[in-house]
Structure formats: C-alpha cells, structure tokens
Simulated scan of single mutants.
Amino acid sequence: ESTEDEQRTMAVLHTLLQDHPLYLEPDLNLLRLARKSGIPARKVSAAINKVERKNVSQYINAWRVQQACRLLRDTDQTVSDAMLASGFQTKSNFQREFRRITGSTPLLWRQANRP
C-alpha cells in the first residue's frame, strides 16, 4: 500500500515529465530524475517501486514507449527514428520494452494504430 507521501512524489514526477520530457534524454537515470524533481533519489525510487510497481528504468521506458507510440501513429518516421527520438539508444532494448508494454512489435503496433 503506497503512502500519501509516495503518491505526492509520483504526482511531482508525473508533472515534471509531462512539462519537461526528460525521458527523451538517453542518459536519464535515477540521480538525474531526483535532482530535477528536487526529491531525494531514495524517495523517488521507493515511490516508483511502491506506486507503479516498476523499477526506475521501467518507469522511464514506459514514458519513452508512450512517445514512440505517438510518433509511430502520427508521423511517417521510421521505427529507428522513432526509437531514437523517444530516448532509446539500442534497438534491442527498445524492441524488448516496446513489446513488454504494448504486447506488440513497433511495426505491427503502427499498422494496427494508424488513423
């Protein structure tokens, strides 16, 4: 059960990432996220673990996959360009995280979700 404090921390992180898409930076990690949010790294990590039931890198990658989905749906960017523009550096990590989150490959997801 997450605490009110952890919920508040997640609200701060959500607003931060919505207003400043730090997840697009390939080198974003716990320490940078903590520094940018003004919340101690220990608290950031604990809140993400308890509230989202993810580790920090899965949490950041979820934001990245969301961005990749937007690009795949709304632009004609290649999958590789969408991957890079979403903050992923390696194709293998992108493919693995994309499939874990969407249940699909980027190409099949695009075909199914294009307007």
Score class of each variant (00 low, 15 high):
S37L: 06
H14M: 11
Q7K: 15
D27Y: 05
R35E: 15
L31T: 14
N93M: 10
N29P: 01
E4W: 11
M10Q: 12
A34I: 05
G103C: 09
A34L: 04
R64L: 01
T90S: 15
L71G: 05
C69N: 03
L24Q: 08
L108R: 13
R114L: 14
R70W: 12
R64N: 03
A85D: 14
N29I: 01
M10W: 10
V12Q: 07
A34M: 04
E1D: 10
I39P: 01
R32W: 03
V12W: 02
P26I: 02
A41E: 09
F94Y: 02
A46S: 14
N49F: 11
A62N: 04
L17V: 06
A46W: 01
L28S: 02
R32C: 04
R53Y: 02
T75I: 11
G87R: 00
V79E: 08
L84E: 08
L13I: 14
T102W: 00
V79H: 01
Y23K: 05
K36R: 15
V44C: 11
N113T: 04
H20D: 12
S37W: 05
H20R: 15
I39Q: 03
S2F: 04
V79C: 06
G103D: 07
Q95R: 11
S86Q: 02
A85E: 09
Q89A: 12
A46N: 13
L33I: 08
L33T: 02
A82H: 03
T90F: 03
F94E: 00
T90A: 13
D76W: 05
L33Q: 03
L33K: 04
L84R: 10
M83D: 02
Q111P: 02
L84F: 13
M10C: 14
A62P: 00
L84K: 14
Y23S: 10
N113Y: 03
R32A: 07
L16S: 05
N55E: 09
L33Y: 02
L84I: 10
K91Q: 13
M83Q: 09
E4V: 13
L16Q: 06
P115G: 11
D76G: 14
L22E: 07
Q95F: 07
T75H: 10
V12C: 08
K43E: 14
F98T: 08
S37M: 11
A82N: 06
R70N: 12
A68L: 04
L84M: 11
D5G: 07
G87H: 01
F98L: 07
R110Y: 04
I101N: 01
S80N: 11
L31N: 13
E97H: 04
H14K: 15
E6H: 09
Q77L: 15
L17M: 12
Y23F: 15
R8P: 04
T105Q: 09
D81N: 08
N29A: 06
K91T: 11
L72W: 02
E1A: 13
L30H: 01
T105L: 07
Q66I: 03
L17F: 05
R114H: 12
G38T: 05
L17H: 00
E1T: 08
H14D: 14
Q77K: 15
K91M: 13
M83C: 05
V44T: 05
L108G: 07
L28C: 03
L84H: 09
R114S: 14
F94W: 01
T78C: 03
